[in-house]
C-alpha cells in the first residue's frame, strides 16, 4: 500500500487528496510526516503542499455539499490523528462519488468514528470557551495559557473576538508552541521566540497589571464561598473539571 506523507497542515492533507485523483492512486493511506515511519515494504510518496490544489479540493467539496460539511471536515481534521485523517479520506471520496448524504449513515463504523471525533472536538472547544483564564498584563494585554488535547485554537478565535472586540488578547498553546493574538478585530497566529515570559507555564508576577492579583484573589474567594460543604462531591467535580485543566484555572491556584 502507498503512503502519502504530508506536512501536517490542512492544505497538505487536501493536496494528498488531489494527488490521489490526479495520479489515480486508489489504495493508499495518508500520514503526517511527524508520525511517518519508513517501512521496508510499501512505498511512501512525500507530498509537497500546494495551496491551489488544496483550494480546488475545498471548492469541490463545497459544490457537492455545504459550508457546514466543510466545517465538519476541518474540525475533525484538527484532531491530529492518523486514523481519523484516513477516515476523512474515505468520506471525502464518498463526497466526490456523489454520496455525500452518507454522512448520516451512523451504521457505518468509519462515518460514526468521524462523528465521534467531531463530538470530541466540540467538547474540547467548549472547554476552552469555559476554562480559558485571561490575566491582565501591565500593557493591558490579556493573556491566557492553554495546552488543549487537540489543536483547537483555529476553532476558538471567533468566540473570543465576538466577546472581547475592544481588548487586545493572546491565547497561547504551550503544547503546540503557537498562539492567537487579537487586536482591533484582527486575529493573527503568533510564535514567540523573544517574549519568553509569555509562554512559561505561569506568567511572572512582575509582568502583571497592578490590579490583576487582587481580582484573582477575589475570584478565588468567590469560588470558595459558593461551595456548599454539606454537598461536597469530588467525583462529580472532577468529571466536570478534569485535573489536566486545573493548571489553567485561577480558582485552583491556591
Amino acid at each position: 500500500m502507498v503512503e502519502l506523507v504530508f506536512d501536517g497542515s490542512y492544505e497538505g492533507f487536501l493536496t494528498c487528496i488531489f494527488e490521489m485523483y490526479i495520479q489515480k492512486i486508489n489504495d493508499c493511506t495518508v500520514v503526517e510526516q511527524d508520525h511517518h515511519q519508513s517501512k521496508i515494504f510499501g512505498e511512501a510518496i512525500i507530498v509537497s503542499t500546494n495551496e491551489q490544489h488544496a483550494e480546488r479540493i475545498i471548492n469541490g467539496i463545497k459544490d457537492k455539499t455545504s459550508k457546514k460539511v466543510l466545517a465538519f471536515i476541518y474540525s475533525v481534521f484538527l484532531q491530529e490523528s492518523t486514523q481519523i485523517h484516513n477516515d476523512l479520506v474515505y468520506f471525502i471520496k464518498m463526497i466526490f462519488d456523489g454520496k455525500a448524504y452518507k454522512i448520516s449513515d451512523f451504521g457505518d463504523s468509519r462515518i460514526l468514528r468521524l462523528h465521534k471525533a467531531k463530538k470530541m472536538m466540540g467538547r474540547e472547544v467548549h472547554r476552552m470557551h469555559a476554562f480559558v483564564r485571561f490575566q491582565q498584563l501591565k500593557d493591558d494585554l490579556y493573556v491566557a495559557i492553554v495546552n488543549p488535547d487537540f489543536n483547537v485554537l483555529p476553532l476558538i478565535g471567533k468566540h473570543f473576538k465576538d466577546r472581547y472586540p475592544t481588548m487586545e488578547w493572546l491565547i497561547y498553546d504551550t503544547k503546540r508552541s503557537y498562539g492567537i493574538f487579537h487586536s482591533e478585530g484582527k486575529i493573527d497566529v503568533v510564535n514567540f521566540e523573544e517574549h519568553i515570559d509569555l509562554y512559561q507555564e505561569k506568567i511572572r508576577h512582575e509582568n502583571l497589571s497592578s490590579d490583576e492579583l487582587s481580582y484573582q484573589k477575589m475570584w478565588q474567594a468567590y469560588f470558595q464561598s459558593v461551595n456548599i460543604k454539606e454537598r461536597n462531591n469530588t467525583k462529580l467535580h472532577e468529571r466536570h473539571v478534569p485535573r489536566r485543566y486545573w493548571t489553567y484555572l485561577v480558582e485552583k491556584w491556591n
Binding site: 469555559a130 459558593v226 461551595n227 454537598r231 462531591n233 467525583k235 466536570h240
Partner: peptide, 13 residues
Amino acid sequence: GICHSYTQDGRCV
C-alpha cells in the same frame, strides 16, 4: 450557556 467552573459539590459556576 457556558459553565466556567464547577464547585467542589459539582455544581456549575
